[in-house]
Design a protein around this nucleic acid. Sequence first.
DNA 1: AAACATCTACGAAATTTTTCGTAGTTCCAA
DNA 2: TTGGAACTACGAAAAATTTCGTAGATGTTT
Lengths: 129, 129
Amino acid sequence: MQKPTDAELEILQVLWQEGPSTVRQVNDILGRRRDIGYTTSLKLMQIMHEKGLVTRIEDGRTHIYAAAVAERDTQSYLLQEFVDQTFRGSAMNLVMQALGNHQEVSAEEIEAIKSLIAKMEQEQNNRPS
Amino acid sequence: MQKPTDAELEILQVLWQEGPSTVRQVNDILGRRRDIGYTTSLKLMQIMHEKGLVTRIEDGRTHIYAAAVAERDTQSYLLQEFVDQTFRGSAMNLVMQALGNHQEVSAEEIEAIKSLIAKMEQEQNNRPS
DNA sequence: AAACATCTACGAAATTTTTCGTAGTTCCAA
DNA sequence: TTGGAACTACGAAAAATTTCGTAGATGTTT
């Protein structure tokens, strides 16, 4: 997988969230957060197209862009890199820190983790030693 | 906190792991993983010193560098940024994905998470609504 | 003491990423 | 039918990061 740069990831986020969009639409959304010229967004999306990070179809004289990579896959990929770089490969340390930092965990979320844990314990038991 | 670049983080990792070290020592360790010139490491560490990411003391004609920022603090900071950028601020999604990706979770680690979860549930109950 | 190795400082090249200006085209409204 | 608004393509400037060469000082070996 081609690793997206920070600016590219920002655009992917918009496409994942909003679905297929024109440069104008993406630029408008980015513009809410920070100053960014139209041609800057355009150029980025053109580069992303070359790299295969997005697809695009013509719609009249404009283009409609869509993410070509799945959000989950990209997150996995970046997560792996981040764990290696920042937590020396220890996903557990990352998890513990993430859970520890964010006190505001809802009951539902806790349940979700618990069931995931339960699943992992099962796998533990079924694993041939 | 000054955000370390990728190369700077790599050096911080060495200093955290090995403790105070000379440029030579850091460079040797980095050199195991990839080609990197001595003066490259030197320059990076000088820059980090200017930025306040490391401290250094003279020892004869060489310098001994030490991390000036705590590993935990830096991880927290970078984690927060990463969650925002990559998981749109949802630490839970990150946690779920991290747990899901890495099947190889030891029994001890599962216990650690469970007790953390238990602690969080307590806080939940004690929280004034 | 001469040759050599090793250290710092520092400028600057090289690379990567981000940003934007300009040119050319097309659409639409006055 | 003319002028302006919006679009793409593209080169290149700007900014950020990484890499390294060279110079000068100091220690070490023969």
